[in-house]
Design a protein around this nucleic acid. Structure first.
Lengths: 189, 189
DNA sequence: CACGCCGATGTCAGTTACTGACATCACAGT
DNA sequence: ACTGTGATGTCAGTAACTGACATCGGCGTG
């Protein structure tokens, strides 16, 4: 007989996503989330640093996968190609969870506060990708600019993936967006 | 005899920047800021929506100037060139306030919460630039990607401008960073 | 098997960001 | 003089978050 049901963090995350979707992020109190998960408010904050983080905790995994993808790209690959490889690796992780990703994205889109957190996560990811590029002996500012461009591509592609009702794969949309970026910047200056 | 000293918003902003710099953002309470400005906490929130916004209220002006710069670029200019014109217009506004910008940047760099707010302001700026491009009949996704790239360039250039102790002009650093972006993406795919 | 430590949770009190409702009073216009 | 208005003050309240301490099953150790 266990003293508590296992999976407290998962129950909290599920309850939070449901409540945020039902009545909005600002209108949901942490006490309500905890109650629905069968726990107390204090326990919520032991698992998640704040009310927003419950939606973003999974992002660390995605970042690790992408960084590995960049590092494992062929040594001869150009910086932008290495980043592309990282994005593709990340896309594989997401590929099976489109409806979860969509529900989560809708909740975030409805709250300015959550958008702030999303942006800083993206920025952290960009920094991690830049770091990976430097690990491949790419110099600054090429590393940072390339990583930023990669993030922009991912952002645009992810939004399209969620928006399109179709079965089109995220990986394909990323390739397409990258081509578009190339076309845009070709005429620079 | 006036009932209150004028310039309440400015006094609050000054007091906030000073205190954030002295002891850090999280360690400063709104009550302390208000007291130093000779006002009450409630009045602080009448001028600024929250504790962070006091550092970002001026950003609206910068955005307007940049948007105008994009719209006023020659009709023949390519999207990326129009964005570049907008960034240059923004640079002019900042050019005279390097030490203020530096102090503010240092405070923001020391706080994750403030970085979140900074990022969303940058994102809003990016959206506004994309909108301006669409006003120039640039189609999606070119408009968004170009604007994003412009933001990335501005971000990198601004950081360098603050970091370098020299008298080098922000405008010049922006031109240089833009050239680097062009070089990076030229090899894409 | 008894003991004792550990880790996840609960309980409780406190701080602080932020909000709504209402009061005050110099100033401006009439 | 009379009155409306706007910027501020006062006060009470909600909810995010934190620190300190209590609880008690499970697990390793002797």
């Amino acid at each position: 007989m266990t003293r508590w049901e296992p999976g407290a963090a998962e129950r909290l995350a599920q309850a939070a996503l449901d409540l945020y979707a039902e009545r909005g992020f600002e209108q949901t109190t942490v006490a309500e989330i905890a109650k629905r998960a069968g726990l107390t408010e204090r326990t919520f904050f032991r698992h998640y640093a704040d009310k927003r983080e419950v939606l973003f905790a999974g992002g660390a995994t995605l970042q690790e996968v992408m960084v590995r993808g960049v590092l494992d790209a062929p040594a001869a690959a150009a910086p932008i190609a290495a980043v592309a490889a990282g994005l593709q690796a990340g896309a594989e992780v997401l590929e099976g969870r489109r409806d979860f990703a969509g529900r989560r994205a809708a909740v975030i889109a409805a709250s300015a506060e959550l958008q702030e957190r999303e942006l800083i996560k993206m920025s952290t990811l960009g920094a991690a990708l830049a770091d990976a590029l430097r690990g491949r002996r790419v110099a600054e500012p090429t590393a940072s600019l390339t990583a930023q461009a990669g993030i922009a591509v991912f952002h645009v592609a992810f939004a399209r993936w969620i928006e399109e009702g179709t079965e089109r794969e995220l990986a394909a949309i990323i390739r397409e967006s990258l081509d578009e970026l190339k076309a845009v910047t070709a005429g620079a200056r």
